[in-house]
Design a protein around this nucleic acid. Structure first.
Lengths: 171, 171
DNA sequence: TATTGTTATACTCTATAACTATA
DNA sequence: TATAGTTATAGAGTATAACAATA
């Protein structure tokens, strides 16, 4: 994970609201919570040996079995050269299979192995559990309201699919 | 900025909701919007030649003039060795002044210069404008509701002050 | 002996561009 | 000539640990 310091909890200072201030800013809170949500998600996926980017790739393969590496990389906005290493690792771990495409021997066709499907299922379950825990401070109605508000903001943005860029595992 | 691809807008695919799915997940939307908010904030601050981390440092200095480098770095969770380069740059640009502390000649005492105060003011104004634009899709009532929901989630987390870690400019 | 600030170093992640094999 | 996949390389950003001056 990119600018991730490490797992240390740290102290519990209450943010001193400097003028104009963070505590009252949607942009600020979103940045903070987004970063934190990413970090937690990263930690949760580690339980099945995946990072968010690999999770994104597995998901996209599951929805588009047989497609080529680059065709799958595109919607995730992962550059071709990066995709190589990602698929290498998933293949080494027997989660994904590269089959030669007889019609175009330059391209591969990617498939999930049975193990890959199992791991993806586990990861999705973990993601759902995490969602529940993260939103635990909110009651069901509040959660849906939040979801609606976030969707309205997201609709204005230009967002890639799968997993978000920063998140996508680095730091 | 870390995993930041670059400023290219890109296409406008609607995320295909894969099972269990992103479009309906608070964690996912927060990660995405948080990353996006960070990127925008980064771009906005560039107009006054600052990045989010420098902005955070200027803010903390403004609130604690005369404190030492490390004392100021701590609440921002910036390691001492990183703080050096940050203050170096702010000092080169005459936004911050390092004065020797006669009582303890190991430590510096940091102060904003008049230019530093001006730039900080400009940056705060830009941040407020950005806040308004970012939340433009929401009416006032909705915006406050969102703020309340985000605060409730944030209250459960362990958050450093100033600027968020990922954001803090890098990558 | 401990602490402030600094420097040196090594590591991780990344994109770019050059290369190969097919088409 | 163009495209899928690969490899090599160089850059940005980081934390760690060793260091000097002062306490």
């Amino acid at each position: 994970m990119p600018g991730m310091t490490d797992g240390t909890p740290g102290d519990h200072d209450t943010p001193p609201s400097p003028e104009g201030p963070p505590g009252g800013s949607v942009v600020f809170l979103l940045s903070r919570l987004g970063f934190d949500a990413s970090r937690r998600f990263h930690a949760v996926l580690a339980n099945v040996g995946l990072d968010p980017r690999q999770f994104g790739v597995l998901n996209v393969i599951a929805l588009n079995e047989g497609k080529s590496q680059q065709a799958l990389a595109e919607p995730l906005r992962i550059p071709p050269s990066r995709m190589v290493a990602i698929v290498d690792e998933l293949e080494d771990r027997k989660l994904v299979e590269r089959r030669r495409n007889p019609d175009d021997r330059r391209a591969y066709a990617l498939y999930l192995t049975p193990t890959g499907k199992t791991v993806l299922g586990d990861a999705r379950r973990l993601a759902m559990d995490n969602e529940r825990e993260f939103t635990a401070p909110l009651e069901q109605g509040d959660r849906e309201q939040l979801l609606g508000l976030l969707r309205r903001l997201a609709a204005e943005q230009d967002l890639p699919i799968g997993v978000h860029p920063g998140l996508v595992a680095p730091y």
